[in-house]
């Protein structure tokens, strides 16, 4: 039982970080890489790329979170 004094991780070995969580870094990388989307073309239905691309990432990030949720909750049931 490690608490109250030991210097180390909280949650110990039971906290097994799922590798699938790494895909949650993708939204950060995509959004931090501003030059990749700072453009007008290609437009979508008249909307410049800058705007529709970032709105698209709202959906992609939600999808990635949903994938992690599905994977983790399936393995929790197993």
């Amino acid at each position: 039982m490690s608490h109250g004094g030991s210097v180390g991780p909280v949650g110990g070995a039971r906290h097994s970080a799922h590798w699938i969580r790494l895909i949650l870094l993708l939204p950060f990388l995509a959004m931090a890489w501003v030059p990749s989307y700072n453009a007008v073309e290609p437009r979508l239905a008249g909307v410049p790329f800058f705007y529709w691309y970032q709105i698209l990432w709202i959906l992609l990030a939600a999808l990635l979170v949903a994938i992690v949720y599905r994977v983790e909750h399936r393995s929790a049931e197993a």
Binding site: H3, G4, V7, V10, G12
Partner: peptide, 11 residues
């Protein structure tokens, strides 16, 4: 060190 009342399994 600090006096921590939380346990590993609390998380």
């Amino acid at each position: 060190s600090d006096r921590d009342v939380t346990l590993n399994e609390d998380y």
